[in-house]
């Protein structure tokens, strides 16, 4: 049994220690807001926070994060929407939306580290892939959230 602290709740999961967090979230715990995109930490669709750090859950074995504080898109904001989610709505960022959970988790982490990011900071931190090409609005929404 592996004990995971996800969005403030403790979950006991009977899985292999090397099973990636992504698949524990999606297939074992039924939390499908975190997406599978590539499985090799390239696209960032699976981004979650582990102890406040943005990580690509497809490449994080659950045993490595036992006892750490995990936050997913479902737990990003317990009361209402996070200011990043509000900015995403205001700027109509998502198209197909599939990458957006990961984008939002990456953006929240960026703003926690750098409350007023420059364009260069955004370029460096936001390495997730969006095939619909919502990047222009993502940049605008991050700047707006920084001011909110």
């Amino acid at each position: 049994m592996i004990k995971l602290n996800i969005n403030g709740k403790t979950h006991q999961v009977d899985v292999e220690p090397e099973m990636p967090l992504l698949w524990v979230l999606r297939d074992v715990l039924g939390m499908t807001g975190t997406k599978y995109g590539c499985g090799v930490a390239q696209c960032g669709a699976c981004t979650v926070h582990v102890n406040g750090e943005a990580m690509r859950s497809c490449s994080v074995p659950v045993a490595a994060i036992e006892g750490k504080k995990i936050t997913t898109i479902e737990g990003l904001s317990q009361n209402g929407l996070h200011k990043v989610q509000k900015a995403w709505i205001e700027h109509e960022v998502p198209q197909c939306g599939y990458c957006q959970s990961g984008m939002i988790m990456a953006a929240v982490n960026l703003l926690e580290r750098k409350p007023n990011p420059t364009d260069a900071d955004i370029d460096l931190a936001m390495t997730n892939i969006c095939r619909c090409g919502t990047y222009v609005r993502i940049r605008a929404a991050i700047h707006a959230a920084a001011k909110a």
């Binding site: 499908t32 807001g33 997913t72 479902e74 995403w88 709505i89 960022v93 939306g97 957006q100 959970s101």
Partner: peptide, 26 residues
């Protein structure tokens, strides 16, 4: 404003890959 946006920023939007049914195998 597009109708589908709010669910797409909270992870609530269910895509084909998110279909979850009782007893489902993968």
């Amino acid at each position: 404003k597009r109708f589908d946006i709010p669910d797409k920023v909270t992870g609530k939007q269910v895509y084909g890959i998110d279909v979850t049914l009782p007893g489902m195998l993968h």
